[in-house]
C-alpha cells in the first residue's frame, strides 16, 4: 500500500506542468527514498529525472517498492482539478491498476477523490554516471527562461559558452544572429538574483532551443536554475523542488558532422 500526503500540493501540480510536454507516459517509482521518475522524450534526446524525497511529505507510507505507469497528460488533467492551496494525497494498492489523487481544501470543507487508470510502460532506467562538470552556472530561473524564449525567436540552436568573461548564449537564424552575455554578479540584494559562474575549464556546446524552452516550464518551481556543462556530455539543467528534491533535465548536445 502506498499513501503519500503532500501539504504543499501546488508543488506536484507544478512538477506535472514541468514534464508533461516533454514526456507522454512514464513510470513513477515509489520507495523508502521518495517518489521519483526517470524518463526520456520520445526522440531520446532529453531525459528528465525527478526526485521528491520522502521527508518532504507530511505522511509517507510505501510498504514495498512500487512502479506506477501513468499518462502524464491525464495525470495533469486530474491535478489541475486540485486547488493551489489543496493538500494532495496519492494513494495506491500494491498490484492495483489505479491510483487515487485526493484533494483536501485547507479548511477541510471540500474533499475530492480522482481515480486514474494506471498503464504498463516498458522503460529501463539509464545509468547516469557521476561527472565533474567543466563549468556550472547558477542564475535566476526567470532570466534563463527569458533568454531561451528570446533566442528561439531568432534561431533553433543555442551555443552556450563559458569563459572567464562570463556565460554567453548565442544563436543564428535566417534573419540574423544574437548574443547574450551574463557576467558573474553576486552583489545583489537577494541571493536568488545572483549570477554565479564556476568555471573549472572553458566550455562551449550547442543545444536545441526547443528542448531548453520545454525545460523552462519548471520555472515556477524555483527562483534559481543551475546549468552544468562539460564538453562531450549532456547539459544538466536543474531546478530545486522546494526543500524536498529536484527536477533535472539532461539534454544531449548537437555536434558538427
Amino acid at each position: 500500500m502506498l499513501e503519500l500526503r503532500l501539504v504543499q500540493g501546488s508543488l506536484l501540480k507544478k512538477v506535472l506542468e514541468s514534464i508533461k510536454d516533454l514526456v507522454n507516459d512514464a513510470n513513477f517509482d515509489c520507495s523508502s527514498t521518495g517518489f521519483s521518475l526517470q524518463a526520456m522524450d520520445s526522440s531520446h534526446v532529453a531525459l528528465v529525472s525527478l526526485l521528491l524525497r520522502s521527508e518532504g511529505f507530511e505522511h509517507y507510507r510505501c510498504d514495498r517498492n512500487l512502479s506506477m505507469g501513468m499518462n502524464l497528460g491525464n495525470m495533469s488533467k486530474m491535478l489541475k482539478c486540485a486547488g493551489n492551496d489543496d493538500i494532495i494525497t496519492i494513494k495506491a494498492d500494491d498490484g492495483g491498476d489505479t491510483v487515487t489523487f485526493m484533494f483536501e481544501s485547507p479548511t477541510q470543507d471540500k474533499i475530492a477523490d480522482f481515480e486514474m487508470k494506471l498503464m504498463d510502460i516498458d522503460s529501463e532506467h539509464l545509468g547516469i554516471p557521476d561527472a565533474e562538470y567543466h563549468s556550472i552556472v547558477r542564475m535566476p530561473s526567470s532570466e534563463f527562461q527569458r533568454i531561451c524564449k528570446d533566442l528561439s525567436t531568432i534561431g533553433d540552436t543555442v551555443v552556450i559558452s563559458v569563459t572567464k568573461e562570463g556565460v554567453k548564449f548565442s544563436t543564428a537564424g535566417d534573419i540574423g544572429t544574437a548574443n547574450i552575455v551574463l557576467r558573474q554578479n553576486t552583489t545583489v540584494d537577494k541571493p536568488e538574483d545572483a549570477i554565479v559562474i564556476e568555471m573549472n575549464e572553458p566550455v562551449s556546446l550547442s543545444f536545441a532551443l526547443r528542448y531548453m524552452n520545454s525545460f523552462t516550464k519548471a520555472t515556477p518551481l524555483s527562483d534559481t536554475v543551475t546549468i552544468s556543462l562539460s564538453s562531450e556530455l549532456p547539459v544538466v539543467v536543474e531546478y530545486k523542488v522546494a526543500e524536498m528534491g529536484y527536477i533535472r533535465y539532461y539534454l544531449a548536445p548537437k555536434i558538427e558532422e
Binding site: 539509464l126 545509468g127 540552436t157 548537437k254 555536434i255
Partner: peptide, 14 residues
C-alpha cells in the same frame, strides 16, 4: 551541418 546526438549515446542501459 550539426547533428543532434541521442541521450542514449551518453547514458547506458543497465
Amino acid at each position: 551541418m550539426q547533428r543532434q546526438r541521442s541521450i542514449l549515446s551518453f547514458f547506458q542501459k543497465p
